[in-house]
Amino acid sequence: MSASLNPASPHHLPAFITAPGETDVLMVVMAVFLVIAVLAVGLLFLRLHTLPERMAHRSHKLQFEIVAVLGLLALFTHQHIFWVAGLILALIDIPDFGNPLRRIAGSVERIAGIPPGQGADKEPDETAAAVPGEGTVDVPTPIAPTRGPLRPKPQISPVSTGS
């Protein structure tokens, strides 16, 4: 028996129709295209998702860790408000209050003659509570400045001109 075509079928078949037992080239091409498209969309999604974190890291913001945590929360909870909050936080500049206070403390230590960073080492622990029965904390009495006798102001005589 020989395989014959149906008389109602066209004599010329399109290229995407394969004969039985042959490899379907169109299906292989579409499978490769689908895998590449899924990977590209996933990569684009992750790049867009990490945008606030990259912005905060690039500009060396203090709140970088907070932005990173908000990004992870948005990724795992699918709550877009975390991503929006991270983006807004990455765009604003939170002022650094710690650095000026450290500079003031260093200047005060330098004025007092204490090596920088060791000012708190010599002070007693004022946060420790006094336990009854273990003794009391001696509080030093303040020393009032002494005043010496007032000195009279020097008298300035008018300068005479030789005319």
Score class of each variant (00 low, 15 high):
residue 1 M to N: 01
residue 1 M to R: 07
residue 1 M to Y: 00
residue 4 S to V: 15
residue 5 L to K: 04
residue 6 N to G: 02
residue 7 P to C: 02
residue 7 P to G: 07
residue 7 P to V: 04
residue 9 S to L: 14
residue 13 L to E: 05
residue 13 L to P: 05
residue 14 P to H: 03
residue 16 F to G: 09
residue 16 F to R: 00
residue 19 A to W: 01
residue 19 A to Y: 06
residue 20 P to S: 10
residue 20 P to H: 04
residue 21 G to E: 08
residue 22 E to S: 14
residue 22 E to W: 08
residue 23 T to P: 09
residue 23 T to M: 07
residue 25 V to Y: 10
residue 26 L to G: 02
residue 27 M to L: 15
residue 27 M to V: 10
residue 28 V to G: 02
residue 31 A to T: 12
residue 31 A to E: 08
residue 32 V to T: 09
residue 33 F to M: 10
residue 37 A to F: 00
residue 37 A to T: 04
residue 39 L to Y: 04
residue 41 V to E: 07
residue 45 F to K: 06
residue 45 F to S: 07
residue 46 L to D: 12
residue 48 L to A: 13
residue 51 L to C: 02
residue 52 P to C: 04
residue 52 P to V: 03
residue 53 E to W: 07
residue 55 M to T: 14
residue 56 A to Q: 02
residue 57 H to C: 01
residue 58 R to I: 04
residue 58 R to S: 13
residue 59 S to W: 11
residue 60 H to I: 00
residue 61 K to T: 03
residue 61 K to F: 01
residue 67 V to G: 04
residue 68 A to K: 10
residue 70 L to C: 10
residue 71 G to W: 01
residue 72 L to P: 00
residue 73 L to W: 00
residue 73 L to Y: 03
residue 74 A to V: 08
residue 75 L to W: 15
residue 79 Q to H: 12
residue 81 I to Q: 03
residue 82 F to E: 09
residue 82 F to T: 01
residue 82 F to L: 06
residue 84 V to I: 12
residue 90 A to N: 05
residue 91 L to I: 01
residue 91 L to F: 10
residue 92 I to N: 05
residue 93 D to S: 06
residue 94 I to P: 05
residue 95 P to S: 05
residue 95 P to T: 02
residue 98 G to S: 01
residue 100 P to S: 09
residue 102 R to K: 02
residue 105 A to S: 02
residue 105 A to M: 04
residue 107 S to E: 09
residue 108 V to S: 12
residue 110 R to K: 13
residue 111 I to A: 14
residue 112 A to Q: 15
residue 112 A to H: 05
residue 113 G to W: 06
residue 113 G to T: 03
residue 113 G to L: 07
residue 114 I to D: 03
residue 115 P to Y: 05
residue 117 G to D: 07
residue 119 G to E: 06
residue 122 K to I: 14
residue 122 K to E: 04
residue 123 E to R: 15
residue 123 E to I: 09
residue 124 P to Q: 00
residue 124 P to T: 08
residue 125 D to L: 11
residue 125 D to M: 09
residue 126 E to F: 15
residue 127 T to R: 02
residue 130 A to W: 08
residue 131 V to R: 04
residue 132 P to Y: 04
residue 132 P to V: 07
residue 132 P to N: 05
residue 133 G to C: 14
residue 134 E to H: 13
residue 134 E to W: 04
residue 135 G to A: 06
residue 136 T to R: 05
residue 138 D to W: 03
residue 139 V to L: 15
residue 140 P to D: 06
residue 140 P to K: 11
residue 141 T to N: 06
residue 141 T to L: 08
residue 142 P to S: 01
residue 143 I to S: 03
residue 145 P to H: 12
residue 146 T to Y: 12
residue 148 G to H: 14
residue 148 G to N: 08
residue 149 P to D: 09
residue 149 P to H: 11
residue 151 R to N: 09
residue 151 R to E: 13
residue 151 R to S: 13
residue 152 P to S: 08
residue 152 P to Q: 10
residue 154 P to I: 02
residue 155 Q to R: 14
residue 156 I to A: 15
residue 156 I to W: 09
residue 156 I to M: 11
residue 156 I to Y: 11
residue 156 I to T: 15
residue 157 S to H: 06
residue 158 P to R: 13
residue 158 P to A: 13
residue 158 P to W: 11
residue 159 V to Y: 06
residue 160 S to G: 07
residue 162 G to K: 02
residue 163 S to E: 12
residue 163 S to N: 06
